[in-house]
Design a protein around this nucleic acid. Structure first.
Lengths: 266, 266
DNA sequence: CCATCTTTGTGCACGCGTTCACAAAGACAT
DNA sequence: ATGTCTTTGTGAACGCGTGCACAAAGATGG
């Protein structure tokens, strides 16, 4: 997952834990699927499976919203869809601007899930004059000179930044100054914003690196297991594995065993 | 942040907490910036600021990797870049396939940050025969019939899914069967995978919904504050606010005060 | 060699989130 | 009505992550 929190204090807004809020959209999606198939009610077990979470967690999550279930039966799908939608604020209209209409920005503009739930792409903005007027996803791109006016005219409070890294902070500053209070950032930079502004970031590169870490660990464990099986009682401890993995670290005096992948306890 | 964990147990791989792993790429990026500007050393305070985190947290994170700092001085930038890269497995080459070359897939293929750190786009795969052979980002798109062969030939262990939601699970199954053990999923679906396979998801729609929630809360708080200030001692409790926010809930007997935005304690 | 000053590395406490396990609540059959 | 059976809602325990605060380590100057 690509997630970047920027909360002053991990604010338990209105008593609903942040972790729960992050799962509500997941439940909502699963429920919408059920609703389309005209399923009237669903148990916590079923819904949890559909959302890919633990059923106890789901029940606790819903308990923060209130008691919307019926014991012995489950949850009313339609009613729950409405309650979650309302809780997430999806019953109202959220005009959104996308700044930076490159490959990614265009992809976002075309993304169906955007328009689906209360979100309306109010404007596409790019700094390149050549882009101005060119329609993307049926919406004409506007020049960034007009950013402030566009924000004001459309009452935009949510901005999406899909610019190159270098442009992200200046764009962010202008968005915030113009009145935007929530930002979804796709640029690979840490954004600095004043208090009261929420920033979430989606960083493809970071996600891949996290996967690489786990991938490497898996490979390492296999190697360790194989090595351990192959040795199974040699005189020396485990310098083989250590040497293999260490590469050319170059020592540096201390270099503790924090380096050695040390065959796992189990 | 868009983050979807799918870990059997929140595995503390090799002693490094998951939360720390997720921050390492952040540190690495900040360090790379310093390295390019030929900064020799950096203190935890400076680096933490650049990465947008607490300095105590950063030091604790690094302590899991070993003692790579010098007290009174700070951290050697180049050395730290190397250590983190090695820890994340970025010193080796990771061939990656992207499946689903629509708007988003094309954007990903063109994304620079992809190729930058050890990640190499080995192949682009799409189910549309019309796409086959067409070059995207300089790489010819291949038909999904050849998926298994492509995975095998290139020794791919990381796959990126950028297909429509409906195609995601089948594609995922084929990737896993072909030997992929890490998946980055952009499709708005919960993927089911066997043990030992890591899935991370990036979900634009979810991120927006989380922002909407906070946005709504901010608006609600303002309204509450205003209302509270306006009333300041009316006979009734707070039906004004409640009525305004409730919309047309329709009651449902129980409907507890979990519904009312109830003026915050503070 | 000693004193001082900076910055790391970490023990500790606290709070959030997850999970278990069960009592309460309601549906449904008899 | 009463009993059984299903499923919710939640109290309590546990574990992870965060942040404080400080002692240890080393650099630097005299």
């Amino acid at each position: 997952m690509a997630t970047g929190r920027t909360h002053r204090t991990a604010t338990r807004s209105r008593g609903i834990p942040e972790a729960t809020v992050a799962r509500l959209p997941l439940y909502l999606r699963a429920l919408t699927g059920l609703s389309e198939r005209s399923v009237p009610t669903v148990s916590s077990e079923e819904l949890a499976a559909a959302a890919g979470v633990n059923s106890a967690k789901l029940r606790k999550d819903f308990s923060y919203l209130g008691s919307y279930g019926t014991r012995g039966v489950g949850y009313d799908v339609e009613y729950l869809v409405y309650q979650i939608s309302r809780e997430l604020g999806l019953t109202q209209d959220w005009p959104v601007v996308i700044v930076g209409i490159g490959n990614l920005g265009a992809a976002l503009a075309n993304y169906g899930g955007f328009a689906s739930r209360g979100f309306r792409v109010a404007a596409l903005i790019d700094a390149d004059p050549a882009m101005a007027g060119k329609p993307v996803a049926g919406i004409p791109v506007q020049h960034s000179d007009d950013l402030e006016r566009i924000i004001a005219d459309n009452g935009v409070s949510i901005g999406v930044i899909a610019t190159p890294a270098g442009a992200a902070q200046p764009v962010c500053d202008r968005l915030v100054a113009a009145g935007v209070t929530s930002i979804l950032n796709f640029a690979p930079t840490v954004l600095t914003v004043p208090d009261g502004v929420d920033v979430r970031k989606v960083d493809l590169s970071i996600e891949l690196q996290i996967l690489a870490f786990h991938e490497q660990r898996k490979a390492g464990e296999e190697a360790d297991a194989a090595a351990a099986a192959a040795e199974a009682g040699a005189g020396d401890t485990a310098p083989v594995v250590a040497a293999k993995v260490r590469g050319g670290s170059g020592g540096r005096g201390k270099g503790p065993d924090g380096d050695v992948p040390a065959v796992m306890p189990a």
